[in-house]
Amino acid sequence: MIIGYARVSSSSQSLEVQHQHLEVAGCEKVFAEKRSGRTTEGRDALADAIDFVREGDVLAVTRLDRLARSVVDLHRLIERLTVKGCGFRVLQQSGIDTTTSTGKLTLSILGAVAEFEADIRRDRQRDGIERAKAKGIYRGRRPTIDIARIETLIAAGMTPAAIARDMGIGRASVYRLMGKAGAA
């Protein structure tokens, strides 16, 4: 049985094209989710797909980056499939098919290249942010917590736990802001 897995990073993206490719490839069941691929943590549909496959099944994705973006995560997932006696296939990168020796080699090489590309992209983004900060263009994310309100509530004698409950934020955020105010 061929089992499909589809993933997009944000809720504004569509899974439709991946579903179509997976159906054409003969997937009898498709697990899909809208979740970041930076890690396998919290990707429930992926966990369900891996739990679902049985010996002799093949897990298929349209592109390698739909499954994993790090070589470590990729190899962990492939190892889990291998232990279960399952194969892995990437539809749009036809050389990747772990049911063959050449496919296993191709998977390792392309996994390393994908991780390298992600690292380069992250470095370029970090460099761009640093240049923007130096020019005074980038100031970071706008604060989401009303610091003045926290200071008022502290002055009124509320405990950090009560403030956190009242504002719907974590207690650690209140303590962190109290520490900054105390240091200033």
Rank of each mutant, 00 (worst) to 15 (best):
M1D: 12
I3H: 00
A6E: 07
R7V: 09
V8K: 03
S9N: 11
S11L: 11
Q13H: 06
Q13L: 09
Q18W: 10
H19I: 00
Q20H: 10
E23Y: 01
G26C: 05
G26K: 02
E28L: 03
E28A: 08
V30P: 00
A32Y: 07
R35K: 15
R35N: 12
S36I: 01
G37Y: 06
R38G: 15
R38L: 08
T40A: 06
E41V: 12
E41L: 08
G42L: 01
R43I: 05
D44L: 04
L46Y: 08
A47S: 10
A47W: 02
A49M: 04
I50L: 08
V53H: 09
V53N: 09
R54G: 04
E55C: 06
E55Q: 14
G56P: 05
A60Q: 02
V61W: 06
L64N: 05
L64M: 14
D65K: 05
D65Q: 09
R66A: 08
R66Y: 11
S70I: 00
V72M: 06
V72D: 13
L74Q: 12
H75S: 10
H75R: 07
R80W: 00
V83K: 14
V83G: 01
G85C: 07
C86L: 05
C86M: 07
C86N: 04
R89T: 05
L91W: 03
Q93I: 11
Q93G: 06
I96P: 08
I96V: 13
I96K: 00
S101E: 14
T102Y: 11
T102G: 14
L105D: 04
L107G: 05
S108W: 00
S108H: 08
S108G: 15
I109G: 03
G111P: 05
G111L: 02
V113S: 01
A114K: 01
E117H: 05
R121K: 07
R122S: 15
R122W: 03
I129S: 04
R131M: 13
A132P: 10
A132D: 13
K135D: 14
R139M: 05
P143S: 14
T144F: 00
I145E: 13
D146P: 03
D146I: 00
E151I: 00
T152A: 12
L153E: 14
A155P: 05
A156D: 15
M158F: 09
P160S: 12
A161Q: 11
A162F: 00
A162M: 11
I163V: 07
I163N: 02
A164T: 09
D166T: 12
M167K: 01
G168Q: 10
G168F: 09
R171D: 04
R171F: 01
A172N: 13
A172H: 09
S173M: 04
V174H: 04
R176T: 14
M178H: 03
M178R: 14
K180W: 00
K180I: 02
A181I: 09
G182K: 15
A184V: 07
